Simulated assay, not measured.
Amino acid sequence: MSKYSIESFVNETKENPLERDYFELEKPALLEINLNNQAVWTKTGSMVGYIGNINFERQGMLSGGLGNLLKKAISGEGAKLMKAEGTGKLYVADDGKKVRILHLNNETVCVNGNDVLAHEQSIKSDITMLKSIAGVMSGGLFQVKLSGTGHIAITTHGEPLTLLVTPDAPVFTDPNATVAWSGNLSPELKTNVSFKSLIGRGSGEEFQMKFSGNGWVLIQPYEEVYRVEK
């Protein structure tokens, strides 16, 4: 049999039936979620396929009452989650970004809103916002605080790097390249650029996120810029 035959291609790329974990990394950029009469939250628009009897319910991530003004300010699918419920295999992905699965054990992590791919229903999600206008100009307008016990899946452009934060060594990052950080950290926005010069710009080099204390920050080798609707 030729290594380029259709049969060889199917054998090489087919789903592994032995993998039965609730959250399973089927491919580096493809998450398999094995549902057994369960519900899971996934990024809206991330479903690429499923097997079985699964129902989908689209709902705004910000439907918890932060106000219509905020809802209008956030564009793109990153502002919304989709509830998938039933029994079967669900496959989700996000523009070819690499997927990382984390299991929280009564822990908390903060994730850039656009980098949340999925989380168990047992995980509580809260929207947190940077209070400075710089957060809006970078497009990194909102972050999601995920807490509790259960699986979450986040996405990164390329291979991420974790930087350790210690009291004597704070970490500074570009907001557009910052993916996630430990839940005990509260980033500050640091800039030496006047407010006027920020208008109409979105480069992270003009300001940084400062992390102080004890913890970690996950960055990616890519500046992800998000559009802000007018």
Rank of each mutant, 00 (worst) to 15 (best):
V225N: 10
D95A: 15
P221C: 08
C110M: 07
N112G: 12
S132H: 09
R201V: 07
S122L: 08
V136L: 13
Q220I: 01
T166Q: 09
S182P: 02
G215W: 01
E223R: 07
G148L: 04
L189C: 09
F172P: 01
S122H: 11
A84E: 03
K89L: 07
R227G: 14
M1T: 04
S75V: 11
T108L: 04
G158D: 07
G202M: 04
L164S: 12
E77G: 14
V193E: 02
I6N: 08
L189T: 13
M82D: 11
N34L: 03
G88W: 00
L185I: 05
K98H: 09
Q220E: 09
V217K: 00
A73M: 15
M82I: 10
Q59R: 14
S138N: 07
N16I: 09
L66Q: 14
F56H: 14
M209H: 10
A29H: 10
N112Y: 04
V225P: 04
S2D: 06
Y4A: 10
E223S: 13
N36E: 09
S182C: 06
S197R: 10
K3Y: 00
T173G: 03
T162Y: 06
A79T: 07
R20E: 03
V99G: 01
K14M: 08
D126E: 11
Y50H: 14
R201N: 12
H119S: 10
F172E: 04
F207I: 03
S182G: 12
S5M: 05
V111L: 01
N184M: 06
I51L: 15
V225Y: 13
V111A: 00
N36M: 06
D21S: 11
L90W: 02
N68F: 15
P170A: 06
K190N: 11
K145P: 03
Q38P: 06
Q220K: 03
L104A: 04
A73R: 13
G78N: 01
N68G: 15
R227Q: 14
F211K: 02
K14E: 11
S46H: 04
V193T: 08
N105L: 05
K210C: 13
A39D: 13
I74K: 01
F195C: 11
W216R: 06
P28K: 03
E24S: 11
A118R: 01
I74M: 11
F23S: 00
D126Y: 02
V109P: 00
R227E: 15
V109F: 00
N37F: 08
L69H: 14
I33L: 02
E57V: 14
R201D: 14
L69K: 15
I133V: 12
F172Q: 09
T87N: 08
L102N: 07
Y22P: 02
N176E: 08
L163Y: 03
I154P: 01
S197W: 01
R58Q: 15
L69Q: 15
S147C: 03
F207C: 06
I127P: 00
